[in-house]
Amino acid sequence: MTVEVRLVNDVCAIGWVDRLNIAVWRANGVHEAQTYYREMKAGISRFGWGVGHLAVIEPGTPLPPPELRKLIVRVFNEYPGAVSAVSVACEGQGFFASAVRSVATGLMMLASTPVTFRLSGSVVDSAAFLSKHMVAGEAPLEAARIVSAVQELRHRMRMKVAKSA
């Protein structure tokens, strides 16, 4: 397995690949946003500075309400400079994708310190970006490991939903 899975439900799946926190979002939830916040804090405690985050927003995912937006950026403000790179992979088109991009950009503007940031339309593009800004030990974090981790998280979400049906 390439990912250390921390949460899987029908709203979100969260895991780690080395210093990179990955969250695949299908809906919004306070519990899930709190888990993301706790995981990012734990990652900073575990690895020190230089952690990263990949948010994968699947098509049709509702935009987070203001209280969740504040929680999402809280870690950036509490630990300025600890996060080295963030990418948001917005999988969707048209108005949905535009709205998600606007919210993601706004969230990053709320951070008290600048973070290397990229919006993209695919996990592959986000993984390529993050592999240039993240390390795994002494080497760059391979984009293929990031893509594989997202696939694993999605597989776990499908299995969880299938078992609950």
Rank of each mutant, 00 (worst) to 15 (best):
T2Y: 06
T2N: 11
V3Q: 01
V3P: 12
E4I: 08
V8D: 00
N9F: 03
D10L: 06
C12G: 01
I14P: 11
I14V: 14
I14Q: 02
G15L: 11
G15V: 11
V17T: 11
D18E: 15
R19I: 07
R19Y: 05
R19K: 13
I22M: 07
V24Y: 08
W25I: 03
A27H: 13
G29V: 04
G29N: 05
G29L: 06
G29I: 07
G29P: 09
V30R: 13
Q34C: 12
Y36V: 13
E39V: 13
E39F: 05
K41W: 01
K41Y: 02
A42T: 04
S45D: 15
R46Y: 10
G48W: 05
G50I: 09
G50R: 10
V51G: 03
H53R: 14
H53I: 08
L54C: 06
A55Q: 13
V56S: 01
V56G: 01
E58Q: 15
G60F: 09
P64T: 03
P65D: 14
P65K: 11
R69D: 00
R69S: 07
L71W: 02
I72L: 13
R74A: 15
V75E: 12
N77Q: 10
N77H: 04
P80E: 02
A82R: 13
V83R: 11
S84E: 13
A85L: 10
A85W: 05
V86R: 09
S87C: 15
S87M: 08
E91D: 09
Q93D: 15
F95C: 02
S102T: 14
V103M: 11
V103E: 03
T105A: 12
T105M: 13
L107E: 00
M109F: 10
A111F: 05
A111P: 00
T113P: 04
T113Q: 15
V115K: 10
T116P: 01
T116G: 01
T116E: 15
R118E: 14
L119W: 02
S120P: 02
S120R: 04
S120Q: 04
G121N: 12
S122V: 05
S126P: 04
S126T: 06
A127Q: 12
A127V: 02
A128W: 09
L130D: 10
K132Y: 05
K132P: 00
K132S: 15
H133F: 10
V135S: 14
G137Q: 04
A139F: 09
A139E: 15
A139H: 14
A143E: 14
A144M: 09
R145D: 14
I146A: 00
A149K: 07
E152A: 11
L153G: 00
R154E: 15
M157F: 00
K160D: 14
V161C: 00
A162T: 09
K163H: 12
K163W: 08
K163F: 06
S164M: 13
